[in-house]
Amino acid sequence: MVDDELYREIILEHYHHPRYKGALPDANLTAEGMNPLCGDELTLYLKTDGDRIVEARFDGRGCSISQASASMLTEAIRGLTVDEAKALLERVKAMLTGSPHEPFDEDDDLSALEGVKKYPVRIKCALLAWTTLEEILHK
């Protein structure tokens, strides 16, 4: 059977029940991401109040890894300031690319994404939501 490292239960759970999926009509920041390798598409919607992200949603079509990662992202960045979100983004990117980073707690859903780094082709799937966030935050 397939390696459980990749399809952790928490990833499948986010995939089947994405947390904040669907457009956010009153978003003030949006960006579209695409993975040209596989055609996965993702739109990320943020609503900020001053420096703080008060709402985050995503929409799009993609594989379990890209959808679960987007779901985790929307959950994780709600309530963060832009700088905190940037720091989180760097931490997730470092985890997925195998660079030094402060590890996530085991009970943090994001830690489940670490298994993806063993599958080079899938790293881009996991990164899609985060690179889209990066595009928004650095605009």
Partner: peptide
């Protein structure tokens, strides 16, 4: 109900090579 990337990944674990993508 399953994305083709996930299908290809699961089959690869069985030594079966198919293509998934556009």
């Amino acid at each position: 109900h399953v994305h083709p990337h996930d299908v290809a990944q699961v089959l690869d674990a069985r030594g079966i090579a198919i293509r998934a993508g556009h």
